[in-house]
Amino acid sequence: MEMKTNGWQPKIVAFFCNWCTYTAADLAGVSRMKYAPNIRIIRLMCSGRLDPQFVMAAFARGADGVLIGGCHPGDCHYVEGNYKTLRRMTLLKRMLADLGIEEDRCRLEWISASEGDKVKWVVNDMTEKLRALGPLDLPGKHKEWDAEMEALEKEVQTQQEGEPSHVH
């Protein structure tokens, strides 16, 4: 299948915990590390705040990939929030696979406050992998799915009151 990839850039929505990964991204900045501009970071206090609904919403709204960053196991600022994230992500990844979302599109990474270089590496690596996968474009897909209803909808709109319809 041919994909429209002209000028397309993968879109990554990232959820970073305040204490480790967000701080690591700050460190990457302070260290002037250059990485792909495809990522949009949303700050959470803890990766444990990550509701799987957020991941679903990001994909549904057009993200090509979702990156979750938290403190390393045993390092959570809130003791064990990241283990709770791991439990949810373990099941979520399995469910996303069943829903046809490729593994590389949803990624959980433990990045400590001192690992600015890991932020750079992960973002670049994920961008490359998403580029290889091509666009997910769920808003476009949903629109495509619903195109089958257009003829009937148009028909309904143009129908006069009470006039019978003949569309199958």
């Binding site: 509701d51 609904q53 919403a57 196991p73 439990r87 949810r88 099941l91 979520l92 399995r94």
Partner: peptide, 27 residues
């Protein structure tokens, strides 16, 4: 907003385990 994702979040939150294997076995 998404019933299934919320059920997943709540059920996974009640699962035990700290290692990926352990968690996978539970789930």
């Amino acid at each position: 907003h998404d019933h299934g994702a919320k059920i997943l979040s709540y059920l996974a939150s009640t699962a035990a385990g700290k290692e990926e294997d352990e968690i996978s076995a539970t789930l």
